[in-house]
C-alpha cells in the first residue's frame, strides 16, 4: 500500500473542489491504492459519502478488499454493473444496487440518481470504475453521451465526479474522449 498515492489523490481533489470532473489515469498495480485514496483518504475527511459505479470488479469483491484494508465501508454505496453479467452474487442490499450489465447506461444514471436521493444530505463522491472497462462493453459514441449526461448532472449537484482510467488498457479514441469530457486528467503512473 502506497500512502503517497492516497495523499496525492486527496490533495488533488481538495485542490479542484466539487463540480469538477476528474479522471485519474492509473496503473493496474496501484488500483487498490487509488481506491483507498478515494474512499478512505479523501471522502471521509470531507464528510462525503461515496457512490461507487463498478463495471470491472464485483461489489462483493471490492467490499471484501476494502474490509481487508480496514476501510470503513459504511458510507460507500455501489452501483454494481458487472455481477449479474458474470453470474455472480446479485443480492441487493441497502448499500448495493445492481444493473444488469454495463450496456444499460441510462439505468446506471438512474441508479446514481436513486442513491443520491437516498443519501439526501451531505456531499457525494461518485467514482466511475473504470472508463476502460465501460469501453469494452460500449462504443465510444454512446459512452461519451452517457458520461456527458452523468457528469453534467453530478457537476450541477456539486458532487465530486471521479473517473478511473487504466493506463495501457485504454484505446486512443477512448483517451481522446476522456480528455474531452474531463475537466482534469491526472496521471498517477509512477507515483509510488
Amino acid at each position: 500500500m502506497s500512502e503517497e498515492i492516497g495523499d496525492t489523490i486527496a490533495l488533488k481533489l481538495e485542490e479542484v473542489g466539487p463540480g469538477v470532473a476528474v479522471t485519474f489515469e492509473i496503473g493496474m498495480d496501484s488500483y487498490f491504492d487509488v481506491i483507498r485514496g478515494l474512499v478512505d483518504n479523501f471522502a471521509p475527511g470531507k464528510g462525503l459519502k461515496s457512490i461507487y459505479i463498478t463495471s470491472s470488479v464485483p461489489s462483493s469483491t471490492l467490499l471484501s478488499a476494502m474490509e481487508a484494508l480496514e476501510v470503513n465501508t459504511k458510507n460507500i454505496m455501489f452501483v454494481d454493473c458487472i455481477s449479474q453479467l458474470i453470474g455472480g452474487n446479485v443480492v441487493a442490499t441497502e448499500n448495493v444496487v445492481h444493473v444488469e450489465n454495463p450496456t444499460m447506461l441510462e439505468n446506471i444514471i438512474l441508479k446514481v440518481d436513486f442513491l443520491a436521493r437516498k443519501l439526501k444530505e451531505g456531499g457525494t463522491l461518485v467514482i466511475v470504475d473504470s472508463i476502460s472497462s465501460f469501453a469494452i462493453h460500449n462504443d465510444v459514441k454512446i459512452l461519451s453521451e452517457f458520461l456527458q449526461v452523468l457528469l453534467s448532472g453530478l457537476k450541477s449537484r456539486g458532487a465530486y465526479p471521479v473517473m478511473i482510467s487504466i493506463a495501457g488498457q485504454t484505446k486512443p479514441e477512448v483517451r481522446e474522449m476522456i480528455g474531452f469530457l474531463s475537466d482534469q486528467v491526472i496521471s498517477l503512473q509512477g507515483t509510488h
Partner: peptide
C-alpha cells in the same frame, strides 16, 4: 426518456441516442 421505478418514485433520464 428512460425511467426507473424506485422507492423514491419514478426517476427519468434521457434515452441515449448513440447506440
Amino acid at each position: 426518456y428512460v425511467i426507473d421505478l424506485t422507492s423514491c418514485g419514478v426517476l427519468i433520464t434521457p434515452l441515449l441516442k448513440g447506440g
